[in-house]
Each structure stands twice: as C-alpha cells, then as structure tokens.
Write a protein that binds this DNA or RNA. Structure first.
Lengths: 258, 258
DNA sequence: TATACAAAATGACGCAGCGTCACTTTCAAG
DNA sequence: CTTGAAAGTGACGCTGCGTCATTTTGTATA
C-alpha cells in the first residue's frame, strides 16, 4: 500500500522534484519513510495530492492551498469567489492585450515590418486616454454620425473588412512612386471607392467629413485613427480627385449626377 | 533637457527602482550622467521607455523587448503573432479555470462549506476525461435525447436556473430530518416538479430516464453529473412518490390523467 | 562655507515554483 | 558483495522588480 516516489510521479503526472518540494514546504509531508529515509506515499496522500493539483489548476498559490487543506473550518465560499474575481480580471487584461496586439499586427502590415515606425504610432494610439477620445468625438459629430461611426473598421485584424483596408493601404504605399494616375493606383482607388460605397454609400456627407478630419493630423490623433503619413494622405486625395474626374458617372461624392 | 531619475519616474508612472533595473540589464542604459554618477535621461530615452512599457503591457518579457529594440531588422510580424497565439491560449486556460471555479462555488453552496466533500467530488468530476463522458452519453441516449441534454442546467452559477436548483438541493438537505412528508420538504418538491415541467414537461420519458441514471452512482459519475449522496437521492425519490400520491391531479409523470 | 537634508547610488535578500546540476546514500537484483 | 538504478540533500537559477541598509552626491539655507 506504500508507493515509492517515482511511481507516484508517473501515476499522477508530475515530477519527483515537485513531490519533494511539496514535502519540503509542508504542503504534502510524507508520513511514512523507509529506514533509509526514502519517501513512501499512502492512498491518503494520493487523494490529497489530487486536491492540491486541482486547486493549483484553479490558480491558487501553494501557500493558500496549504491553508485551505489544513484548516478544517476554511471559508471556501469566500476564497473561491475572490479567486473567480481574479480570474475574470485577468481575462479582461488578456482581452485588451489581444486587441492591442491585433492593432499592432495590422500596423506592421501597413507600414512594413522593417522599422519601429508602426510601434511608435501605436504607442501614441494606445497611450491616448479613451475618455478624451470619446469626448472629442462627441464634440465633433452629431448623434447620427456617432451612430455611423460604428461602421468604421477598427484596425482589427480579425475583421475581414479591416484586413482589406490594411492590404489596400499597404499596396498604395508600394506603388505611390508611379504617380496618382498610374493604372495600378487607380485600380486600388476604384476598389476603395467601391468599399466605401458599400459601407457608407447612403451617407456621402459623413464620408466627406471623415476625410476632412483624416487630413488634419491633430484631429486624427485625437480621434484615435490609425496614423497615416501626411504624404500618403495627400497622395490619396489627389488620386481620388483624379478618379472622380475620369469617371464618367460621377457618383462617389454624390455631389451631382448628370 | 536632461531629466533626473525621479522626475522620469513620476512623469511616466513607474518606480525609480525599475529605471535602475532597466539600466542594469541593459534594456535602457543611461548615456548621460552627472560627475557624481547620477543618471540623467534624454528625450530619446523617454521615447524608448514608452516603447518598452508598451511592449511590456503586451506581455513580452524584458529580455525579448531588449532584442526587439536592439536589432534593427527584427521580425516583428512573427513575434507579434506568436505573442497573440500565447495570449489566446492563456485566455482559453482562464476560461476553463472560471468554469471550474463556478462549478466549485455551486458545489460548496449545495454541500455546505464546512468540509472538503464538495472539493473531492469536483476533483473527480474535473479529472474525468471529457471524451469518455461523451462516448458514454452517446451509448446511453438516442439523438433526440442528446438534443434534450442541452437543456439541463450545468452547475454553472452564472445560470439562474442552475442557481435555483442548487438552492433547492441545499434546502432539501437542510430539512431532510423532518421526513419525506413534511410540509417544508413537500413545498420544495412541488417547486422542483414545477421547474421540471417548465423545462421538460413535454418529454416525461426523458425525465424518467435521467432520474434512473441519477440513481446509479456509477452512471452519474460517468455522465459527469454533479454527485449527490445516495441517501439524498433515495430521500428525493420517496418524497417525489409521496408528492405524486398526494396530488389529486396526477400529472408529473404523464402516466395517465383522470 | 559649513551644514543639513533630500535624493541618488550600490548591494543584497526575497518572492513562487519548481528545473537542473552535483554529490552522497540507499535499495533491490544477481 | 557488487553494481546500477533510484532516492536523498543542497545549492543556484529564473522574472521583475520591492524593500531594506549603507554610502555618496546635490542643493538650499544659515
């Protein structure tokens, strides 16, 4: 009925070192020993060990587990609930980490991975006080526009729309040198216009307003837009203008249809 | 333009010790010093510090951050993605921890918080191989019944139905001594029947089958039911029988209506 | 300019939960 | 009795600092 340490380790799936450590800190002291001093474990010990491992998986610290199993009048409800609260907080933290990571990944995709530029931008973005952003937004936009705001892609690589925008932006940067009228550029611009139409075709004034805000670096930063270099923005503006001028049925800005 | 260490600490919101540590490990070495050896930080240093802190919030380790900022040709995309994967794994782990904690909390609510009984049960529950449970279930139940299975409460304290079942069970245990025919017991039984009717009134045979499985400790464990002591189950069985017998319009089991 | 007091520096220990040597002793089989 | 595996003890290492303890430096005042 007495089991040597290595069998216990194999059976339960932990290391011998761990068992010795648990003995050492008094978490699972070995009652039985051979004359030579080798540890021997009873069935009781195994049960207790399972409890310990279970509680460890719940995220409790060994010290707390020791107390829990020692004191027979331990307040389980209280410590379980506080542990639950802790676990929930951690989840929240990880969720925000995931969000930031996705933004960063998107940023790298746009700017190219060579330098730390994207990082710098994103740091400014994330360092921004969210409350301030919201206040600034509310001051600039009316209720309907705040509602439309939700339709904007949010630089989140999980959203396929965002992903395409990111890809398009990155492509523009690649072929900028060819000039606004180049077929490659104009093809990208056309796709961008299509996408804008898809999502905001019914609200052309909102689109214009957004684009004006985009052109102001200060506003863009305040609003938490992903920062695009000024020269890229200027290039896009020209390219859009060229596109409008050369499209027979001018429709994009809804200014006037022939 | 050179800022003493404490101002940096206050401005950025970290400790002086941290700054010295970052210097020590070469993460943010101080270029400028006074003749006496006091550290002085430049604007450059501040920027780098912000990057460091941002990456630390993303969950990177200081050692990795050092590499990232040193090597100018760092593969950002790759490390960001692997970090994202890690964060997602952690979230998964925390989710399962939360689930187990909720189960444990419910268990304590049923069994009373004095002893370690609930813990023992839950350990068996969680130690079970999920795959085995599913196989066992599939062998016992047909397709429609597997579908009905979803309606069962799952000992999750977040679900109000589960919460009431837990509360009712705990109440029964409290007043068991008064006998199956006691008004208190019968009142609880009535409520239980109502709830069963609510959720499974249309499938009385399924209810009977479940109850039979419940009465077998082995099956219950295999199915991952929350373990209820045999005496409590027997008591409930008798109490249900008494309730059926004394209800004029026998309806519960749908065996036959007058 | 001497003095006092704040701020900075260095050095060391501690924390959680073991992994990983290094070295010695015990156990069980032949 | 030998031998090799298994077990024992002890110590250091890891992460990212917090927290003393002790010594120097910087700066403002008397």
């Amino acid at each position: 009925m007495l089991i040597p340490i290595q069998q216990v380790a194999k059976q339960i799936g932990i290391s011998v070192r761990t068992l010795r450590y648990y003995d050492q800190i008094g978490l699972l002291p070995t009652m039985a020993k051979t004359e030579g001093g080798h540890r021997l474990y009873t069935e009781e010990d195994l049960k207790k060990l399972q409890q310990i491992l279970f509680l460890k998986e719940m995220g409790f610290r060994l010290d707390d587990i020791k107390q829990m199993l020692q004191k027979q009048d331990w307040n389980w409800a209280s410590s379980l609930k506080s542990q639950l609260a802790y676990v929930q907080k951690e989840q929240e933290r990880l969720r925000s980490m995931e969000l930031s990571l996705r933004e960063l990944i998107s940023g790298v995709a746009v700017d190219g991975a060579e330098n730390v530029v994207a990082l710098q931008k994103l740091i400014r973005l994330s360092g921004q006080d969210k409350a301030k952003q919201i206040a600034f937004k509310s001051a600039l936009l009316n209720d309907k526009e705040l509602d439309l705001w939700q339709r904007l892609p949010h630089m989140n690589a999980a959203d396929p729309h965002s992903m395409e925008w990111i890809a398009l932006l990155a492509q523009v940067k690649q072929v900028m040198v060819e000039g606004t009228s180049s077929p490659k550029v104009q093809s990208i611009i056309r796709r961008m216009c299509e996408k804008m139409d898809e999502q905001f075709g019914d609200e052309p004034e909102f689109l214009d307003k957004l684009w004006e805000l985009r052109k102001s670096p200060a506003s863009s930063e305040q609003l938490g837009f992903y920062p695009i270099e000024q020269n890229v923005i200027a290039f896009l503006d020209e390219a859009f203008a060229f596109y409008d001028a050369n499209t027979t049925a001018v429709q994009r800005k809804g200014e006037a249809a022939p």
